[in-house]
Design a protein around this nucleic acid. Structure first.
Lengths: 354, 354
DNA sequence: AGCAGTATCCGAAACGTTTAGGAAGACTAA
DNA sequence: TTAGTCTTCCTAAACGTTTCGGATACTGCT
């Protein structure tokens, strides 16, 4: 039982293909009762336009591509399902579907991206995990292919579409929160990879420190490969056993934050009385651990929904009319939980050292 | 700058479209040096066949659809990214792409499924979250559309393709492990939804209990809606405060297991000395909590990879030659962690009651 | 020279849709 | 009556690909 086509419908109704097509598409040059007959027959036959045919003539596929690297590390992205849910919701509202361009371990993302773009499988692209500079962005820019990114590079033109979470403000806020609570010896455990979110979060912290202009504030920085749990634990442990252990540590991600909590427990350092930790991402696990992890929520779902809408605007050329700016920065909201608190009293400063 | 087409390539090379097409497709009726000229020109022009054109004539899209419900609950599926990674990897190896058919809150999955199938956007479908009986499965069966499921219904024909984790054996194993450790008063916190994995896990437990044929074994059963954290907590707390509190509780999922650990901590019931808990899923959080949660790992990624390969086999008709059976049951592996241990001594049985 | 066989290429149709550019008839206004 | 304007419908081309069924020229053989 093959799917009904326009031709079949037309011959059944003794009409031309054109008329059936135009009736279904809602054009006004079809008589009212003809239109009704057509709609009835279409519904009865279960007619759904063949997307390949349509795509061939319109040049649009109705697909949005999402570049998905399949590294061998276990978790792709902790909030990936959230992201997908938001994106899917946004795209569905605009009658598009999402397709996953998977990047195998042996391929480069750029390679896959080029193939997708050139084969015309997608009308637009969504890119995540943006680096401080990003060859994928450069390629699509040059190619003139519609795309949007979750995150920005360090040198985007003002017209380049992106949606990002304001990590800069978030980390400044975190610093202020902790500074006000009396903390002066700070730590930051960051990642080694030059992702742009690292840049912004770090910058936010640095600027906030500078702005305080308080010589008693110190900052120790540790780095770890992003996806190596053992290295993460080492970085945390190193900072926690240092001679001048910080009283407050900012973790670039929750995974790092959880690792710090774990090492602190192992070293019998009480959180939050002896040590404050603030993470970023609001992973599910950050609610399950004890103490619970204070962190920032990115509202990933919302972000991705926005991303979808904006990309379709871009493709349809709707964004030219200027209702929304091309770039959109969303606030991260601080989720105050159990892993931060007032700094330990100055008296204790030298007794807690290792 | 539009993408190069076969026609352009052909006229450039002073050849017919046919020849260029056949050379690129690897047919043998093209002279060696002609073939080389064509390949060179194609590479130079960056030619990639237009997928709509190809799809129109071959009737294949190269896409596999994955039905993705966008419920309003925050996390779609804890291991969703894992699943996607595996599926993507499998499909990529077979030169297919994965597309996401998102189901909005207002739509039914069946409705979306029908639309995808009838519009010819996909060559095959992957279904997850299978119910004990499932209208989506019925529809696709009847429609004769290629599909595979992660999970099985309670009445699948032997030829119906699926890959599933053996929850039956897993729960029997868990029971045996605990029984051998001296536990006799068991609890099970299950879900309310008639998902088929619930059926198999419960059945596995029941059968294991029956097989022991030990009158001193008791089983208390609690149920909670799958995605309601508050109800989950209530169910856990109810079982933990019952007059005859179990010494070992099996949680149908890790989310339930984590909730039990949380409630136990709140009630000052020590795990594992007073209570053993075993979950299922191996969520990331189960490693972060203290005590860590003993649970089963489903090897989601591996499962999904298998799923992808088998579906493509099915589509290509390769599975007819009978190298692999249509149905495949994978073992879940017990990850022994900190939340289970020997049963508390009989002496304590009546002192721990609430 | 005549013939079969082979290597190499091509014309044309087909897939299902959209849409530009009419055409035919009915109505309106003078 | 006649020209003009709507309303309603249709013909035909186009999108880019694959593939069936030849066509042509060359080879080797008798």
């Amino acid at each position: 039982m093959r799917r009904p086509t326009l031709r079949q419908l037309a011959s059944e109704l003794d009409l031309s293909i054109t008329t059936v097509s135009r009736a279904l598409a809602g054009y006004s040059d079809v008589a009212h009762d003809t239109r009704q007959r057509i709609h009835q027959a279409a519904k009865k036959a279960g007619y759904v336009p063949n997307s390949a045919g349509k795509s061939l003539v319109t040049g649009q596929t109705g697909f949005i591509g999402l570049l998905l690297p399949l590294s061998d590390r276990p978790q792709i992205d902790p909030f990936f399902s959230e992201f997908l849910a938001g994106l899917g919701e946004g795209l569905q509202a605009r009658a598009r579907d999402c397709f996953l361009a998977t990047v195998g371990p042996a391929q480069s993302e750029l390679e896959v991206l080029q193939h997708v773009v050139e084969s015309g499988r997608a009308d637009g692209m969504v890119l995540t995990r943006i680096g401080e500079s990003d060859e994928r962005v450069d390629y699509l820019n040059e190619r003139g292919f519609p795309f949007i990114t979750h995150g920005r590079t360090l040198n985007d033109a003002p017209s380049r579409c992106w949606v990002d979470t304001d990590g800069e403000t978030a980390f400044a806020t975190a610093f202020e929160e902790l500074y006000s609570a009396g903390h002066r010896r700070f730590g930051l455990i960051s990642i080694e990879e030059p992702m742009s979110f690292r840049h912004f979060r770090e910058t936010g912290l640095m600027q906030a420190i500078q702005q305080r202009n308080d010589a008693t504030v110190s900052l120790a920085i540790g780095r770890t490969p992003r996806f190596d749990p053992a290295a993460r634990a080492r970085a945390a442990s190193t900072m926690l056993t240092s001679h001048t252990r910080p009283t407050a540590i900012l973790a670039l991600t929750d995974e790092i934050g959880l690792s710090i909590l774990e090492q602190a427990a192992a070293l019998r350092i009480d959180v939050p009385s002896e040590l404050s930790v603030i993470g970023f991402d609001n992973l599910p696990a950050s609610e399950w651990v004890r103490p619970t992890l204070t962190t920032f929520d990115q509202r990933v779902r919302e972000t991705a929904l926005e991303l979808g809408h904006r990309l379709v605007d871009l493709i349809d050329g709707t964004s030219g009319s200027g209702q929304r700016p091309a770039q959109h920065l969303l606030d991260a909201t601080l989720i105050r939980r159990g892993s931060h608190g007032p700094a330990p009293g100055v008296r204790h400063e030298y007794t807690t050292g290792n």
